Deep mutational scan, measured.
Amino acid sequence: HNLTITQGKLFFHYNPKLCLSEIHKMEEVSGTKGRQERNDIALKTNGDQASCENELLKFSYIRTSFDKILLRWEPYWPPDFRDLLGFMLFYKEAPYQNVTEFDGQDACGSNSWTVVDIDPPLRSNDPKSQNHPGWLMRGLKPWTQYAIFVKTLVTFSDERRTYGAKSDIIYVQTDATNPSVPLDPISVSNSSSQIILKWKPPSDPNGNITHYLVFWERQAEDSELFELDYCLKGLKLPSRTWSPPFESEDSQKHNQSEYEDSAGECCSCPKTDSQILKELEESSFRKTFEDYLHNVVFVPRKTSSGTGAEDPRPSRKRRSLGDVGNVTVAVPTVAAFPNTSSTSVPTSPEEHRPFEKVVNKESLVISGLRHFTGYRIELQACNQDTPEERCSVAAYVSARTMPEAKADDIVGPVTHEIFENNVVHLMWQEPKEPNGLIVLYEVSYRRYGDEELHLCVSRKHFALERGCRLRGLSPGNYSVRIRATSLAGNGSWTEPTYFYVTDYLDVPSNIA
Results as ranks from 00 to 15, higher is better:
Val414Thr: 03
His416Thr: 10
Glu362Ile: 12
Ser492Thr: 08
Asp385Val: 08
Phe462Arg: 07
Ser363Gly: 14
Pro312Val: 14
Ser274Asn: 09
Leu487Gln: 09
Ser257Gly: 07
Ile366Gln: 01
Tyr498Arg: 11
Val345Gln: 14
His461Lys: 09
Leu225Gly: 02
Val443Asn: 00
Ala220Pro: 13
Leu470Gly: 00
Arg390Glu: 02
Leu464Gly: 11
Asn477His: 06
Arg286Trp: 07
Gly264Ala: 15
Phe215Gly: 14
Ala405Val: 09
His294Lys: 12
Glu451Phe: 12
Ser257Glu: 15
Glu417Leu: 10
Ser304Ile: 11
Lys317Leu: 12
Gly436Leu: 10
Leu293Gln: 07
His254Pro: 07
Leu455Gln: 08
Ser283Leu: 08
Ser315Asn: 11
Leu280Pro: 15
Arg469Glu: 11
Gly322Asp: 14
Leu213Arg: 09
Ser444Tyr: 14
Glu420Lys: 13
Glu221Pro: 06
Arg319Phe: 07
Thr272Ser: 06
Asn339Asp: 12
Ile410Gln: 03
Ser458Leu: 08
Ala336Asn: 09
Glu260Arg: 13
Asp503Thr: 06
Glu389Gln: 13
Lys271Arg: 12
Ser304Asp: 15
Ser486Trp: 00
Ser363Asn: 05
Ser284His: 10
Ser239Glu: 09
Val414Asp: 00
Val214Gly: 03
Ile366Met: 11
Thr303Trp: 10
Pro332Ile: 09
Lys302Gly: 01
Ser304Asn: 15
Thr288Pro: 09
Pro431Gln: 01
His461Gln: 11
Met402Thr: 06
Arg218Met: 15
Asn422Tyr: 09
Ser248Gln: 15
Glu224Arg: 13
Pro434Tyr: 03
Asn435Gln: 01
Lys317Thr: 09
Glu404Ala: 03
Lys432Val: 06
Val457Gln: 05
Leu440Val: 08
Leu455Trp: 05
Glu265His: 10
Leu379Trp: 03
Lys317Ser: 12
Glu290His: 15
Pro332Glu: 15
Ala335Tyr: 06
Glu388Ser: 07
Phe372Tyr: 12
Gln256Ala: 15
Gly412Ile: 03
Arg390Asn: 12
Gly207Glu: 02
Leu487Pro: 06
Glu362Ser: 09
Cys382Phe: 00
Ser203Pro: 03
Met402Asn: 05
Leu455Arg: 08
Ser509His: 01
Cys269Ser: 04
Leu277Val: 12
Glu378Ala: 12
Ala263Lys: 02
Tyr478Phe: 05
Arg447Phe: 02
Thr494Tyr: 02
Arg313Tyr: 09
Val345Met: 10
Ser392Asp: 02
Asp273Phe: 14
Asp311His: 14
Pro245Cys: 10
Glu404Pro: 02
Leu235Met: 11
Val501Asp: 02
Leu321Pro: 10
Lys302Tyr: 11
Tyr445Trp: 13
Gly449Phe: 12
Ser341Asn: 15
Gly325Lys: 15
Ser344Tyr: 08
Arg483Phe: 01
Leu440Cys: 14
Ser262His: 07
Asp311Cys: 04
Ser243His: 12
Gly472Glu: 09
Phe215Leu: 08
Leu293Val: 05
Ser257Tyr: 10
Pro300Thr: 13
Gly467Pro: 01
Thr303Asp: 14
Gln275Met: 10
Glu281His: 15
Glu465Pro: 01
Ala407Trp: 09
Ser283Arg: 12
Ser348Ala: 14
Ser248Leu: 07
Asn208Pro: 10
Lys432Arg: 05
Pro508Trp: 02
Val424Gly: 02
Ala405Asp: 11
Arg400Gly: 06
Lys287Met: 09
Trp216His: 03
Val359Phe: 06
Ala395Lys: 14
Gln384Met: 08
Gln256Pro: 12
Val457Met: 11
Phe462His: 13
Val457Ile: 08
Ile438Gln: 02
Val359Asp: 01
Glu249Pro: 04
Gly234Cys: 15
Ile482Cys: 03
Ser284Val: 13
Phe337Gln: 11
Ser251Thr: 10
Phe285Leu: 11
Pro314Val: 04
Gly412Gln: 11
Tyr230Cys: 10
Phe499Ser: 00
Ile366Ser: 01
Lys287Phe: 14
Asp273Pro: 15
Thr241Pro: 06
Arg318Lys: 13
Asp250Arg: 09
Asn435Gly: 01
Phe355Trp: 12
Pro312His: 12
Pro431Met: 02
Asn255Ser: 09
Phe298Ala: 15
Ala463Asn: 14
Ser348Asn: 14
Val439Asp: 03
Ala335Arg: 13
Ser304Lys: 15
Val327Gly: 08
Lys278Val: 11
Lys361Trp: 06
Ala335Phe: 11
Arg318Pro: 08
Pro403Gln: 06
Phe499Asn: 00
Pro270Phe: 12
Glu227Asp: 10
Pro387Tyr: 07
Lys302Arg: 11
Arg483Asn: 01
Met427Gln: 02
Ala263Pro: 10
Lys278Arg: 09
Phe462Lys: 06
Gly374Met: 06
Leu505Arg: 05
Asp409Arg: 12
Ile377Ala: 06
Arg483Gln: 04
Glu404Ser: 07
Thr373Arg: 04
